[in-house]
Nucleic acid binder design. Structure first.
Lengths: 337, 337
DNA sequence: TTGTAGGCGTTATCAT
DNA sequence: ATGATAACGCCTACAA
């Protein structure tokens, strides 16, 4: 701990005026004389005054702060979304508190409590993979503004921002079929995630619509640890009749598949085609460059922030319509398919 | 805005006891009867009580919160460091506020002000590339605890956490020389960064010690935008006598060099060797896999958090020694050299 | 235009 | 073991 900070009282004392006048000067109230305002501003600078957010939050019961909870800021999709959130929040004069749940349910609950203690004006959350009870989210919806991001829970009523996972998967698989691949496999994410379910649905329907069979053998559910990704890839590639194409739930998984395929000396895309999901910045630099489904993560973050701030600033009484913003995805065809 | 939240007064009213008793019960004070404690805890749960961090911060003048300011959480080095920071902070019961300056000086100053308003107990900061005045950091050092991370400013007295940039660069360049490369170039980062300077020094001394000339033509200073990275790479590769190896200030730059080299149909590492710095998770998956200098970013983050919390919890009066923790780097030799 | 007083939610000190 | 009260820093009627 270091020295105490200066308060408006210090400034008041320094200038021989009252604290309220100082407060008014600092807050651009109209009814304060130009000279006192000037004096106050100068004194504030000189004494290195910084307003105490606690005192202000206490009396105003508003913090101009939004809480963002993502599973893993290490993943480009999320860090880029966060950048989008910050972009609009900062422009609107909001502060952003960023936290990661590390895909842990208990951390998620704890961090949400923290947001609560800090009385954030609103929250943007993407639940952890291990989250299978939604009471904590329901509590939030009851008391503050919430935007669900990427992984959404249907039964929770709030704004939602997602990408069109179904369409993206459908595009990817249709592309593979059109390229002539006969046995398209899918490494899916955890079953309870909306994202996994929708991409799976796109995969299945694209196959159906193309008249291809849906072979259970060619579908793996992956917990998304590195080891499990590799295991799923190995299992698929070691089948008696292995797939000739693999569509994965996201880019990191696709990269592990590429790794395993290369180890087995398979040629991509001749022996095995690979298509990911995300279009992370580094995918063009892989060899071969990865075909993948692009999601506009930055724009999605911007929209989430906009929706949240709109809701925060909606006066009580005005009842608002909750919307689900669905961003269309874009297939980026590169060398791996 | 949504409904009001419950306070200890509400609980007190509900139970017909005083607010102070409620407070004591909630804070595990010894002198409160088991039954009242039990009743309070139940009522708190029932009324969905969450303590107001503002009120507590106001009276305690401590927040158990640390502020983290990084240039760009999108870069794996920083996001992984942040994970390290959170790892120890959360374990010690501290909250973490994460912000990014986007390499902008003014954002950096603003966000530091925000930390100030929120009266964070301490700050971990890695300054933006454009930061060339240090008054804002000096102010922080005067009033609260600070740990400088990765990019450090010598004249600011505080704990510092860095990796051994000199050693890492020296290792990388020595390796290239030993491999028989004759004309080793260097794409450096912005001149004012400690990181850039130390890696440059390692590059120069490794060449000197090996009896190689240091050729100014083979040194580029890069602003680290994508375009400038590519431009630096092109310039080097288009020299009449181009280098046969390039050591870059970080992995993202190395990746751009690889890209440009491939465009020019150069074979890596036969025509041109490339060595990066960071050992980002994806470097093994490039083709060829990138030789690079590993920095223990997660551990560095952990250490930064530990140092900061130690300082925060050091009682006033006890004067503490500021230390600089230097993490050794590790050359990871892969296919690109 | 400026000052006074009360209150925001919590803790800590002093009584009881 | 519990209650009353002041204080933290700031804002905002209300009064002057």
């Amino acid at each position: 701990m270091k020295s105490e900070s200066t308060t408006i009282k210090d400034i008041a004392l320094h200038l021989n005026i009252s604290a309220s006048t100082v407060s008014r000067a600092l807050n651009n109230h109209p009814e304060v004389s130009p000279q006192t305002r000037k004096a106050v501003l100068e004194a504030a600078k000189k004494l290195n005054y910084h307003p105490n957010a606690f005192a202000i939050g206490l009396v105003k019961n508003r913090t101009r702060t939004i809480g963002v909870l993502m599973p893993d800021i290490t993943q480009p999709f999320y860090s880029s979304a966060i950048s989008g959130i910050e972009d609009v929040a900062v422009n609107q004069g909001y502060y952003v508190m960023i936290c990661q749940s590390d895909e842990s349910f208990s951390k998620e609950v704890n961090l949400l409590h923290m947001f609560n203690r800090y009385r954030v004006d609103g929250i943007i959350v993407c639940p952890a993979t291990t989250t299978d009870s939604y009471q904590h989210l329901e509590e939030i919806v009851a008391h503050t503004s919430l935007v669900q991001f990427d992984r959404v829970i249907d039964s929770i009523t709030s704004h939602k921002v997602v990408s069109d996972d179904y369409q993206g998967a459908y595009q990817a698989v249709s592309h593979l079929v059109k390229q002539g691949y006969q046995r398209v496999a899918h490494i899916a994410g955890p079953n309870q995630l909306s994202v996994s379910k929708n991409r799976m649905k796109g995969y299945i329907e694209a196959l159906r619509d193309a008249g291809h069979p849906v072979n259970e053998q060619y579908i793996r559910h992956c917990s998304l640890t590195k080891e499990h990704k590799r295991q799923c890839a190995s299992e698929l590639l070691e089948l008696k009749i292995p797939p000739d194409a693999i569509f994965t739930v996201n880019d990191p998984t696709a990269i592990e598949v590429m790794y395993v395929a290369k180890q087995k000396l398979l040629i991509i895309p001749e022996d095995i085609a690979i298509v990911g999901f995300d279009d992370q910045a580094m995918t063009p630099y892989l060899d071969p460059a990865l075909t993948t489904v692009g999601q506009p993560s930055f724009a999605m973050g911007q929209t989430a922030a906009r929706l949240l701030i709109d809701q925060i600033e909606t006066p009580v009484g005005v009842d608002l319509q909750y919307t689900t913003e669905t961003f269309s995805t874009q297939l980026v065809v590169r060398g791996s398919s």
